Amino acid sequence: MNEVFAPTTLGPLTLRNRVIKAATFEGRTPDALVTDDLIEFHREVAAGGVAMTTVAYCAVAPGGRTDRHQIWMRPEAVPGLRRLTDAVHAEGAAASAQLGHAGPVANSASNRAPALAPSRLFSPLGMSPMKVPDETEIGELVTAHADAALLAIEAGFDAVEIHFGHNYLASSFLSPLLNRRKDRYGGTLQNRARLAREIARAVRDAVGERIAVTAKLNMEDGVRGGFTLPESLQVASWLEADGTLDALELTAGSSLLNPMLLFHGAAPRREFAKTLPGPARWGFRLIGRAFLREYPYEKAYLLERARQFRRELSMPLVLLGGITDSESMQLAMDEGFEFVAMGRALLREPDLLRRIESDAKTESACVHCNECMPTIYSRTRCVLRIEPSAAGSAPDSR
């Protein structure tokens, strides 16, 4: 395990080890601003030993959120984000901001702004047609990512992670199922990848080498007619050749159509249904089994797909999915991955990494029930964990 816990570099950063806290939406910003509760969430995992924690979800526009309670990057958000990064740095860890636009996954009713999609789609969340941006509006979205990255620097972040996964905006453009455009952003894979590449280039040009720039990329959507693994390999090769990224975090699944491909384990259908209002709850009972599919949990469950990227790429890669113990971490290192990312296991035990470092036989207490997933609508947490008294949730006003 010496390799896992030795200092390493990510672009211009020096990190204390190779373990990253993956972006898991925290649900702790009721007024779309940083709260003490959000700060404590990230301070706790930083104190628990990760090299870098990722703040999710820092939208690049108010309409790019999955609901209006999420942070969007604007000057008013910077003081609170600065308090957060200061708290993380005080624990010896780095902080990354996940930047993106939810696109078709955005809740237009909550945001009071239309959801965006590459082609005409109907939003089940907003119960309204989605807006199809023209090329001028696409250019504005690209610029918004660059502007958000500059605000991240101002807020003290050490890195940004650009969201190219889960059928959020850039990912939806990659999907031939969702993208039926006839202009230079649709049709061929090269055209469908144009938006992701332009965003990565704009962010890199804006920040230079001041911070690390990574991206989360779908290896596949897991949906018939969607973005496939061979296509993703080609897009990853283009991104590598562009030289805009310091690392790729490899993911899978569609928040819009097949979220469980990312998570694996139990599908919490009943728990999700309880979060919905009456009519929607009945509708979910009809489609819940098709929407929340069952994928058996196993350690490093995305490794088989990710191996193909490791064989074809030379850039640093982050292995995500089923990384919960020393065995899975060492497996990733042996397979040539530079970093691993942990998510749900740290919701249950924020100090898990410290304990693994002290005793390599330490086992995670996460049972992969995925009942943490529906808590995103209130306050993301492990339902089996007895938390210390929660910090206050008032928005930062300094």
Rank of each mutant, 00 (worst) to 15 (best):
L13F: 12
P296A: 13
D325T: 08
G225N: 06
A59G: 12
G278K: 11
E154R: 14
G336M: 09
L125Y: 14
R192Q: 07
E363W: 02
L150Q: 14
E363C: 06
Q190H: 13
F227Y: 15
T324H: 14
I287G: 03
V340L: 04
L141D: 00
R269S: 01
R289S: 13
D205K: 15
P259R: 02
G139S: 00
L313I: 04
A155K: 03
G278W: 13
V78F: 10
T14C: 05
D86L: 05
A117M: 04
A46Q: 13
D31C: 06
S378Y: 12
C366Q: 11
M329T: 04
E3T: 15
L302Q: 01
D334R: 15
E76D: 14
K274S: 04
T251E: 02
E231Q: 12
A109R: 15
V105G: 03
E294V: 12
S175N: 06
P296G: 05
R289G: 00
G265E: 02
A365Y: 01
F164W: 15
L178Q: 12
E371Y: 10
L319V: 05
S232I: 01
M373Q: 06
L262V: 02
E363V: 11
L15H: 06
D359E: 10
P62F: 11
S389I: 15
N107V: 03
A94H: 15
R310G: 04
P133D: 05
W72A: 01
A59M: 01
L257V: 01
L229S: 07
A97G: 09
L248Y: 10
V45W: 07
A202R: 10
L303C: 10
R355Q: 13
E154H: 04
R355Y: 04
V203F: 01
S119E: 01
G343W: 01
C372Y: 06
S232R: 05
L15A: 09
M130H: 08
A196K: 11
N218I: 08
Y301G: 03
G336I: 13
A365F: 02
P75V: 07
E357C: 09
D67E: 04
A152T: 10
S232N: 00
V105S: 07
M342H: 02
A202C: 06
A23C: 07
P62W: 11
E91S: 09
S96L: 09
P124F: 10
H264N: 10
T214Q: 10
H89K: 05
K21T: 03
P118R: 11
V367W: 00
R18L: 08
W282R: 14
R354M: 11
E271N: 02
R398A: 12
R83H: 11
T143Y: 07
T214V: 11
A200C: 13
A109C: 04
H368M: 04
L286A: 14
H42F: 08
L195F: 15
I138R: 14
P277A: 08
M342D: 02
A202D: 00
A113D: 08
L81C: 01
E231K: 02
A6Y: 02
P30D: 05
T228P: 00
P79Y: 08
D147P: 00
